[in-house]
Design a protein around this nucleic acid. Structure first.
Lengths: 212, 212
DNA sequence: AGACTAAACGGAGAAATTTCCGGATGCAAC
DNA sequence: GTTGCATCCGGAAATTTCTCCGTTTAGTCT
């Protein structure tokens, strides 16, 4: 529900069985208007806290109901806004050059991946935090998290640690979660590098290949 | 601001310099009324989602303004409700018997401590999640987190791992955060034991003393 | 007791979120 | 083109969160 990725759908006249029947033209238009307006508002204000569903509707020139139909709620709006950048990142860790993409040893890729997630946070921590206001588990149900989870779990399996990847994957991603990131960055005063170094240290320690 | 721990203050006629000048009698009364009413509402409804500041005020027979004066916002109310149990837990890991209390080796205490945090989550995950609705970093500014953080960091220092305790402490606590816990428990279907086992595995792996 | 002061109280009301549904509109089938 | 229908739109209204400020009250000092 969070991200319907309208742009990626095939030609509208060739509906795929079992798929939602393609977005209607007027719906797509108001989606674009809304996302553009939202980005403009964030850019102008310089922050995410100015994003009210009310104000967004007014700014985009649509009714409030439309905003809610599109995004469900504030969290859904934030998730939709995040989608763009996420897709670039996803391309990078699936098809891009090593160490992020294929070619490097799994644990090295995992490290690069987590650093990548932290880079995402550096850019969009507030938006990511906004997603979590929907419900405690909203973060885990966004498609970006699902993809990230699957990818990292695969790497951990390949690394053949003696730790259950099924558990470890979420534990590692929790270290790169938005709220912790904001706390470390803005209240603890850590630099992005320091945070990355922390993750690296832990990851190295988990590798049975090089126990100090 | 979150937890003023009124019960613990000394005699009201002996104000301590530099401290907030002790809670007034009427304030204490309405605080008790509010906390009792809140607990009653949660118990009756069987969940935390029925807790509206409006409804609570009505139920406790005070004005809305009073609720906000006491707790600041929904998150503050949740933090206040959590305080009781936290204090029992704090007693246990500071003064209680090993392995939670003093006497066991530091890493063993750290493990017991994290298991204890998870036990807290098992009981109060929803309330803990509610705290986070205040702001992304609300969790980290609640006194319970501060105490937990200080304690665990001390243990990690004593354990003398080759990982910066300053970073590791928050990383470990992130694995026991409310939103991840709710996700693992209710959507992934993990048992409390499974989650504890995951934490144990990671902690063991971090110990340079016993590299597989 | 009487008066003074700082704190607490209450509830109206501003602001935001979210729901709801009658009406409009795109889209496909004929 | 027009018919049928699923979808979308709009904005009023219900709900909830939170603020503000005039009034009341507890605690203290004389």
């Amino acid at each position: 529900m969070a991200a319907q990725g309208g742009e990626l759908a095939g030609p509208a006249d060739l509906p795929v069985l079992g798929q939602p029947p393609a977005e209607r033209a007027d719906a797509a238009r108001s989606r674009r208007k809304l996302l553009a307006a939202a980005r403009a508002m964030i850019a102008e204000y310089g922050g995410v806290s100015c994003l009210s569903m009310d104000g967004l509707a007014a700014r985009a020139g649509v009714g409030v109901g439309t905003v809610y139909r599109r995004f469900g709620d504030r969290g859904g709006l934030a998730a939709a806004l995040l989608d763009d950048d996420e897709q670039t990142f996803q391309q990078a860790f699936i098809f891009g050059p090593p160490p992020l993409g294929p070619g490097a040893p799994p644990l090295e890729r995992a490290r690069a991946f987590l650093h990548g997630v932290l880079d995402q946070m550096e850019r969009h921590a507030d938006l990511a935090a906004l997603v979590e206001t929907r419900s405690p588990t909203a973060r885990y149900n966004v498609s970006a998290y699902r993809v990230a989870r699957m990818h990292l779990r695969q790497l951990l399996r390949a690394a053949d640690l003696d730790i259950d990847p099924e558990y470890l994957v979420d534990a590692l991603l929790a270290m790169a979660g938005p709220s912790l990131f904001i706390f470390q960055r803005r209240e603890l005063g850590l630099s992005l590098q320091q945070i990355k170094a922390g993750v690296t240290q832990i990851l190295e320690r988990l590798d049975p290949g090089c126990p100090a």
